[in-house]
């Protein structure tokens, strides 16, 4: 069972991973990505962050990303939990947890999902620094990370 949630409330890492794998002896590997809020970005100290999203489209786009991962790899379960609203340094922002029979699929699918989430899911970060508020700019390195997976499609190395 896949779970996709967008929420203001904090999430519990252990509880999410336990729920992902509970009662499924076909799972041989769980790979997780936990994204955290840094207190430093683009040369400035960041005091807080507000995450905005497009309710409805966010869940739909995350669902499409997970569905694409499932087409590419043999997976037993996926959990994506993303927070919105006010966040402070050290707060978890996003959890991607992927369960599969073997580690290879889980590693690749987890990285694929976070790479696609960063370039496709409609979330926007606004940082509060000592000199005021600013919207976070999209990074070319994130586009490059996403493009790798599409290049793999072309060369047939994706699986």
């Amino acid at each position: 069972m896949d779970v996709i949630r967008v929420q203001e409330a904090p999430f519990q890492f252990d509880a999410e991973v336990d729920a992902l794998r509970a009662g499924n002896p076909a799972i041989g590997a769980v790979v997780t990505f936990l994204g955290l809020m840094r207190d430093f970005n683009d040369g400035d100290r960041v005091l807080a962050m507000t995450l905005e999203h497009y309710p409805g489209m966010t869940e739909k786009s995350l669902g499409a990303i997970v569905a694409e991962a499932r087409e590419r790899w043999e997976l037993q379960g996926v959990r994506v939990v993303h927070r919105v609203g006010e966040l402070r340094p050290e707060d978890p922002i996003v959890l991607v947890a992927v369960a599969s029979p073997h580690r290879g699929e889980a590693f690749r699918a987890c990285e694929f999902i976070i790479d696609y989430l960063k370039t496709r899911a409609p979330f926007w970060k606004k940082e509060r620094t000592e000199s005021g508020e600013r919207w976070v700019e999209a990074r070319h390195s994130d586009d490059a990370a996403e493009a790798r997976w599409r290049d793999e499609d072309l060369s047939g190395e994706g699986c």
């Binding site: 786009s61 993303h82 960063k118 899911a121 926007w124 919207w135």
Partner: peptide, 29 residues
């Protein structure tokens, strides 16, 4: 641009009742 919550190009056709959203490049995760 997204029409009815799917990303599209500017040449995408529209129908009565559609929801059209405009936004900057995304920065989640």
């Amino acid at each position: 641009v997204a029409v009815n919550q799917e990303t599209v190009g500017v040449d995408a056709p529209l129908a009565d009742g559609d929801e059209v959203a405009f936004f900057p490049p995304v920065t989640g995760g």
